[in-house]
Design a protein around this nucleic acid. Structure first.
Length: 211
DNA sequence: GCCAACGTTGGC
DNA sequence: GCCAACGTTGGC
């Protein structure tokens, strides 16, 4: 069992699997469903580095918390959003993800982690004590998945959301690799894909002067 | 602490 | 299967 953690990610206890299946069919046509989705190779995952209490439980989990764990590895539990879950299910061992700090003094990309275990059942959905307990999810048909991630390194300099946003806006106006970055086009998604080009461009920023 | 954006719920 | 009401995210 991987070390436990308290990432707080999206949201609700989602409901009706039937409803979800309908959506997935629709999505498949338009090309976002998990089956027919393009294969993404890079990811961005959000977590909160500052203390915040939800049902009396601190959901803080920043990159320093990941780094401090045995093996610098953790499961990424608590995702309760279908799109985010579906992206996690597409993740392959060895792929890289940005660790993004959200809902904090300075939001932005703090470091890099690696997917070290592909999607499996998120046990916290069955744990009544857990913040993300989901009474609607049944043992014989679990709704929610998680992956394991391992800390790789900090970015050479913290990459603030404000800077990424400026670049995104510039690229949107004049063209450039970040013009469609999910961080801005799908703002509230806690697990999101990046193309290799987007990932490489963002990473190249660590060697540049802050804007 | 506010609140816009947006995902989810559930009545019809 | 539409869509208004509701709840959450997360920047500011």
């Amino acid at each position: 069992m991987p070390p436990n953690k308290k990432a707080r990610l999206l949201n609700n206890t989602g409901k009706a699997d039937g409803r979800e299946a309908v959506k997935r069919k629709t999505a498949a046509k338009t090309k976002q469903g998990s089956e027919s989705a393009p294969q993404f190779s890079h990811w961005l995952m959000k977590s909160e580095p500052e203390s915040r209490f939800e049902n009396g439980i601190d959901v803080k989990f920043g990159i320093e918390d990941l780094k401090a764990l045995p093996d610098q590895t953790s499961c990424w539990d608590g995702v309760r959003n279908y799109q985010a879950r579906n992206f996690m299910r597409q993740m392959k061992e060895g792929q890289l993800a940005f660790f993004y700090h959200s809902n904090c003094k300075e939001p932005g990309i703090a470091g890099i982690m690696k997917i070290v275990k592909e999607a499996y059942v998120d046990h916290t959905q069955f744990d009544k004590k857990d913040v993300h307990y989901d009474a609607s999810s049944k043992q014989d048909n679990p709704k929610w998945s998680m992956v394991d991630v391992q800390y790789q390194r900090m970015v050479k300099r913290f990459l603030p959301l404000s800077e990424l946003k400026q670049i995104h806006q510039q690229h949107r106006a004049q063209g450039g690799p970040l013009k469609d970055m999910a961080l801005f086009t799908r703002a509230r998604l806690s697990v999101q894909p990046l193309t290799a080009e987007e990932f490489d461009f963002v990473l190249s920023l660590e060697d540049t002067e802050p804007l």
